[in-house]
Design a protein around this nucleic acid. Sequence first.
RNA 1: GCGGAAGGCCGGAUGGCCGCGGCGCCGGCUUGCCGGUGUCGAGGAAAGUCCGGACUCCAAGAAGCAGCGGUGCCGGGUAACGCCCGGGCGGGGUAACCCGACGGAAAGCGCCACAGAAAACAGACCGCCAGGUGUCAGGUCGGGAAACCGAAACCGUCAUCUGGUCAGGGUGAAACGGUGGGGUAAGAGCCCACCGCGUGCCUGGCAACAGGCGCGGCAUGGCAAGCCCCACCGGGAGCAAUGCCAAAUAGGGAUCGCGUGUCCGGGUGACCGGACGGGGCCGCUUUUGCUCUCGCAGAUCCGGGUUGGCAGCUGUAGCUGUCCGGGCAACCGGGCAGUCAGAGGAAUGGUCAUCGAACCGGGGUUCGCUCCGGGGAACAGAAUCCGGCUUACAGGCCUUCCGCGCGU
Length: 139
Amino acid sequence: MKKPPMTNPTGNKTGGGMSGAASLRAVTTLRKRHDFLLAARALHVSKPGFVLQMRRHAAENASGMRVGFTCSKKVGNAVQRNRAKRRLREIARAVLPHKGLADTDYVLIGRRDKTASLPFDRLKADLESAIDNLHGRLK
RNA sequence: GCGGAAGGCCGGAUGGCCGCGGCGCCGGCUUGCCGGUGUCGAGGAAAGUCCGGACUCCAAGAAGCAGCGGUGCCGGGUAACGCCCGGGCGGGGUAACCCGACGGAAAGCGCCACAGAAAACAGACCGCCAGGUGUCAGGUCGGGAAACCGAAACCGUCAUCUGGUCAGGGUGAAACGGUGGGGUAAGAGCCCACCGCGUGCCUGGCAACAGGCGCGGCAUGGCAAGCCCCACCGGGAGCAAUGCCAAAUAGGGAUCGCGUGUCCGGGUGACCGGACGGGGCCGCUUUUGCUCUCGCAGAUCCGGGUUGGCAGCUGUAGCUGUCCGGGCAACCGGGCAGUCAGAGGAAUGGUCAUCGAACCGGGGUUCGCUCCGGGGAACAGAAUCCGGCUUACAGGCCUUCCGCGCGU
């Protein structure tokens, strides 16, 4: 029952100019510490499983939609941090391609225990509502 | 069967859907992206970063000295080690087996709390013994039937002095070696036997060491995880090392040289090559090597500050499987087959289903177990690469050995 939502958006997404698959390849990944620091000063919203930060950046960069993932030492040891980041990557892959805005950086921050233990559907729903919240505040 | 010792192995499984990183192939085009497909893709500790190396840069080559650091029974293994194997010695355990910073205390310095008479070189003190002096009148002697009276310093009491003595002195981690006997006024290695210690020789062993015989009467208390001595080893920093390419900024600070080099050869010349002298480069000395020596913003160093890309980057002191030979073993030599992650805010996953160990509840039980329901997997994620050590770890499996009990 989780499969239909995966396959359907791909059909809709082709209108966005991206290549079709519900893939993170459509959005680039944040790699530079500088970008993370800029996002940390921008809008953010907290959910039980994560914190979402969002920053609009100048269009002349033409870098499209970008997303980053981060977990501090507070999340736990290396195994727990990796697991949290993988789950964040999965919800971003499921939600961002049809909900995100172009020329925007999103940063997902993992939280202790909750990011790894909450049900997957709950995390996805929280991400969608968090994005709606931030987009509403943008206006 | 119960209890124990040693070693080794595994450490969730299968499938569906959707993804990620590397490499190969095919196709497309906006020449570096996209799509398809195949294949490979974390651990026994990947961890702590504690040792040892490989590899880079610092001139990093050699010798000596000094300093600093490390190691410390012996032999072997190894590229090397503080690791591993075998042996010795000491300690623990009925045993299998386990543990050990295990060189030197007659080179020197230092320390030895508390307790104790005394803590290091030899004694002082208590005590014991002998003698002297004084004292008392218990034994003794005289008288007496007895009570009692008297005497003297022979034995004894007490005090004190002199000498002998270290056996004994609740302690303590440790006390002029221990036990027994002789001996003596009392005692003492004073003498003797055994043990210990030291020393000489012999035997076994490559050696650590062990055994035997003789000699010495004991001299040398402990601590070297205090300084130290001896032997051996070690230059420093680290893949964010380092090298290359492209772009851009600053051209900031310091040092050298201060306008003083000489000679030879080649060239029309700018200049090039060589020799001598001088300067600089490891803590110091010597040696080798490199570099500078006349130019102007030149060389070197430091610093700010980068940004992107590539290399280093994964195949070798390899590793894995298997077989043969040597060795008690660690390990060594050889044959065959395979080649096994390479990211860079960091891939190796997400989710669902089924099965599932521990554990929990209930029923049955021949106490071995079995049925039903719940429950859902320990420690933990490569970051240049190897060899070790240490630490963490739910649970399970296998092999060998020891003790006790039962049966034969």
